[in-house]
Design a protein around this nucleic acid. Structure first.
Length: 409
DNA sequence: AATTTTGCCAACCGCCTCCGC
DNA sequence: TGCGGAGGCGGTTGGCAAAAT
């Protein structure tokens, strides 16, 4: 609460005021005595609870030099305002609380006008001048996230944007502002929200896929249903990041085709296709499109059909025929390792040290927006898989897997 | 149809750095 | 050199609508 602005006296506004209780804690200069004057005055608010108007009467002016005004309204809320009475004779003094919450169109307009005049800086004067009852930080945030020109408000992330975020997050960590500079029209808040939802979604999928165990047979019908609908790890077919040129439309079409062509097979032996195992478990390698496909297949209730729904149209650059792997029951026990706390560390966000700009420049396919937008890379060789990634797996993990047949045979 | 869950997003909070005094 | 204000940033929360149950 603070002194905000002097307004022309308006008796009409005064007449609408409610009775509030005021106390003036005055500190006359050169006096050790503090005068506390209690007065009931005509004080009122405008249509909003955070704006009060106070008429400093000539009586008070004659008795006070200055001080702190404490205003108590009907429900006991106190407001504080510092006043300089010498400047207030015959004026309405608008005293405002900091406004929070959703922005009104009028507020946006004021903010836009301010930026037009002074540019996107000097946010604090917006409040000190009484233009808005918002903090400078709030004004800046509103401008950066919503009012700035050329923002992609309301547009979902494209597959290309998803890919860029995933790669840059692996590279820079949670440096959302930095990542956002590579995405025209996106803010750090956008990127952060996108990543957050994606992480939640992934966590839910992984949590459900790790649930099956021998004891789960006694679990509730709901968990059984989840177990059925969410693919276990071995249900997941080969995944690879979508080709860089692939659009969402292509992906959607592929997914639709894959799912519609699925047929139910009552198999007792799980057959899966295996490419690079780490690709399946590193959440950073899933684009949302991949996850969507994963979920779509899970809805099909059929792991075999899921494997059958080969995403080849997804990944036309896959150079070799995909070998098949038959899992023994013992091998399937491996999948229970997903419940192992240690194993779950694989899914924890990686602490990626921030690379310097020199390293960024070594990646010609990714450039910040300020240098001309993100560039296109026509081929990717999965730079997000660090060599040390395999070290994160239990040492005996691959021992339990049957060897891959030679693709050439 | 009612209730619960999920996804999305705007906005706030707290911490940090920078800069001027 | 220390201090305080302004701005930047990442984490988190809360509201709302759509989807699922």
């Amino acid at each position: 609460m603070e002194y905000m602005q002097q307004l022309p006296f308006d008796q009409g506004a005064i007449n609408k005021m409610n009775d509030l209780h005021l106390s003036f804690d005055a500190n006359p200069p050169k006096s050790s005595n503090r005068h506390r004057l209690q007065r009931s005055l005509e004080v009122g608010g405008f249509d909003s609870p955070w704006v009060l108007c106070l008429h400093i009467s000539s009586y008070l002016k004659s008795n006070l030099i200055g001080g702190v005004v404490i205003i108590q309204n009907d429900n006991g809320t106190h407001f504080l305002a510092e006043v300089k009475l010498g400047e207030m004779e015959g004026k309405l003094v608008e005293i405002s609380q900091i406004r929070k919450g959703p922005w009104k169109a009028e507020e946006d307009e004021v903010l836009i006008n301010h930026v037009k005049k002074y540019g996107p800086r000097e946010w604090s004067p917006i409040r000190s001048k009484g233009l808005l009852q918002r903090t400078g930080k709030s004004c800046r945030l509103r401008w950066v996230n919503k009012l700035r020109p050329n923002l992609k408000n309301g547009c979902k992330f494209t597959a290309e944007e998803e890919r860029v975020v995933i790669e840059l997050q692996a590279q820079f960590g949670n440096k959302w502002a930095k990542i956002a500079t590579y995405l025209p029209g996106r803010t750090d808040n956008d990127v952060k929200n996108f990543w957050s939802s994606r992480q939640k979604r992934l966590a839910r999928i992984l949590q459900n896929s790790g649930a099956p165990s021998s004891s789960s047979s006694s679990s509730s019908s709901k968990s059984l249903k989840l177990k059925r609908e969410i693919p276990a790890f071995h249900d997941v077919p080969v995944f690879e990041a979508p080709k860089l040129s692939s659009s969402m439309e292509e992906i959607s079409y592929t997914m639709a085709q894959s799912c519609s062509s699925s047929s139910y097979l009552d198999n007792t032996e799980t057959i899966i296709k295996v490419e690079q195992f780490p690709k399946l478990v590193n959440p950073k390698l899933y684009t949302d499109a991949n996850m969507a496909q994963l979920e779509l297949m899970s809805i099909g209730n059929n792991p075999y059909a899921a494997a059958e729904a080969q995403p080849q149209a997804f990944f036309p650059q896959t150079p070799h025929p995909q070998p098949y792997l038959t899992l023994s029951l013992e091998s399937q026990d491996l999948l229970a390792k997903f419940e192992d706390p240690y194993f779950s560390q694989v899914f924890a966000p990686m602490d990626v040290p921030e690379l310097d700009s020199g390293n960024v420049e070594q990646q010609p396919f990714l450039e910040p927006v300020r240098s001309g937008g993100f560039g296109a890379r026509e081929e990717a060789d999965n730079p997000m898989i660090p060599d040390a990634f395999f070290d994160d797996f239990p040492a005996d993990m691959f021992d339990q897997m049957e060897p891959l047949p030679n693709p050439s045979t």
